[in-house]
């Protein structure tokens, strides 16, 4: 009888269970816990979780609120600093040269077979399809 060392077996189980987690690491992100971010960002779109963009992207977004993807989203300087600090301290990974979450490679990959149809006006409306998106839960597709 061939005996599989317990450690190897445990490692194999761990790898197997870790794999889906790695593939879908953006399906569960920590929710927004900063009231100013919730209020100001959440006024025009869902307050996206800081983990959905890298710090460089957040910095560039907070630098350009006067022309925020075509809309004026200006805020007083103290509010900008406050929100910037929260977003960058809790930022995720990704391409810092891309400003839109919807342009990040993982996002494009996850949504490559999805069509908005009549469900949502844009991919920025996460909750149109992901009911618990505001709580950072995106598994329900």
């Amino acid at each position: 009888m061939i005996r599989i060392p317990a450690l190897t077996a445990a490692a194999a189980v761990l790898c197997l269970s870790a794999l889906p987690g790695l593939a879908n690491e953006m399906e569960r992100v920590p929710p927004v816990t900063h009231p100013a971010t919730q209020k100001e960002c959440g006024e025009c779109h869902m307050a996206f979780q800081p983990g959905l963009l890298p710090a460089q992207s957040w910095n560039r977004i907070m630098d350009g609120l006067a022309d925020h993807f075509g809309d004026n989203a200006s805020l007083p300087a103290d509010a900008v600093a406050d929100i910037r600090a929260y977003l960058t301290a809790n930022a995720g990974r990704g391409d810092g040269t891309l400003l839109r979450i919807t342009e990040q490679r993982w996002f494009v990959h996850e949504h490559r077979k999805r069509h908005l149809g009549n469900r949502a006006k844009s991919f920025a409306d996460c909750q149109a399809c992901h009911q618990d998106a505001a709580r950072g839960l995106y598994e329900d597709d």
Binding site: C44, H45, M46, G70, A120, A124, D125, A128
Partner: peptide
Amino acid sequence: GQHQKTGR
């Protein structure tokens, strides 16, 4: 209402 672009 509904935000013209985002649907919020």
